[in-house]
């Protein structure tokens, strides 16, 4: 099995989709000539031409609005929003148009589009280039939200996302673009909405998604040396999310920690905790703990950002609390 960087794994999925289906098109700011701000779309313009791989002006509302209209008219557009923070300008197209078209038009059409966008801190990009806003989209009926945690999943989930008939927000953690991981090119797409157990364990379950899964695995490694056996569940997709898989893990470990990089308050973790305290109440031997960013904007300075981002030590502290 070859080692592939996260960004390259995304590129390979885009390449495959453009090769396989002439209705797939790709557009966004600097995705064509420049190959993308993080190099993720490099080489695709040369391979597929400027009809299907297009640079757009810096016009997020029109980019995403046009993707919705194109998806309603026979194409499968993949658009990139350079930083997840910028989706704020394109929310109408996602929330009022893409999410609702199928429902409010009585099932006459679907909106087969993918909005790719990088979230996350760790690169000192400051308050407007670091946010994890996936909970906004997970709250909207009609949208799907997928957040891969490693190169192989990024490729396999993106292929599934492009093939999916509904609008999908595909979130890539920008700090992971250069991360290497094993990737088998013959692997199948991963079904959206299914979690997987990234590490099996008995004493406590950590549920996470995206880059934070790796933080959970680091914490699990450290805890293993203290004979604490941690199970890590990678959601892969947060809308829909695999509550059966989380409940199954909770039923084995009876203790639960939910981890994400996004701000804890009103986040994805809040939904998971609420559901598990309902359907999993009898399984719980301790209150559920959430680990995430504090309720403040992502700060710029290295020292501030490193305190802001949840790390393995924060996860270990939460695990200790649920085991106490």
């Amino acid at each position: 099995m070859a080692e592939v960087r996260f960004g390259k794994a995304v590129n390979m999925a885009l390449d495959d989709a453009l090769a396989a289906d002439p209705t797939v098109i790709l557009f966004g700011e600097d995705v064509a000539e420049a190959g993308g701000p993080f190099g993720v779309t490099r080489g695709l313009l040369e391979k597929y031409g400027d009809r299907r791989v297009r640079d757009t002006p810096i016009s997020e509302a029109a980019i995403v609005g046009a993707a919705v209209g194109a998806a309603m008219s026979g194409l499968k557009p993949i658009v990139e929003i350079m930083f997840m923070d910028f989706v704020a300008i394109a929310m109408d197209a996602m929330v009022n148009q893409a999410a609702k078209a199928r429902f409010m038009f009585g099932g006459q059409c679907s909106v087969p589009m993918v909005l790719r966008t990088p979230h996350g801190g760790g690169v000192n990009a400051g308050p407007q280039h670091s946010q994890c806003l996936e909970a906004w989209f997970a709250h909207i009926p009609g949208l799907k939200v997928v957040v891969p945690s490693n190169p192989s999943d990024a490729n396999r989930l993106l292929r599934a996302a492009i093939a999916d008939p509904d609008p999908i927000v595909f979130v890539e953690n920008k700090a992971m673009y250069s991360l290497k991981g094993e990737f088998d090119e013959s692997s199948e797409p991963i079904e959206i909405g299914k979690a997987y157990v990234a590490r099996a364990g008995n004493d406590v379950t950590i549920v996470s998604y995206g880059a934070a899964v790796n933080t959970a695995l680091q914490a699990a490694d450290k805890l293993a040396s203290r004979n604490i056996s941690v199970e890590v569940v990678d959601l892969r997709s947060i809308q829909p999310w695999d509550e059966e898989a989380v409940l199954a893990s909770l039923s084995r470990t009876h203790r639960l920690v939910v981890l994400h990089e996004a701000v804890t308050a009103f986040g994805v973790g809040a939904e998971i905790v609420a559901r598990m305290s309902d359907i999993g109440f009898d399984e719980l031997d301790a209150p559920i703990k959430r680990v995430g960013a504090p309720f403040m904007p992502t700060p710029f300075a290295k020292s501030l950002e490193s305190q802001y981002l949840p790390n393995a030590e924060d996860v270990i502290a939460a695990v200790e609390q649920v085991l106490a």
């Binding site: 609005g65 046009a66 209209g69 009022n96």
Partner: peptide
Amino acid sequence: MLGANGIVGAGIPLAVGSALAHQVR
């Protein structure tokens, strides 16, 4: 008929996207 729209101006980029689809196809 791609839809009336409850948001002022929101149909305009949808039509642009639809035109893009016609051009590509």
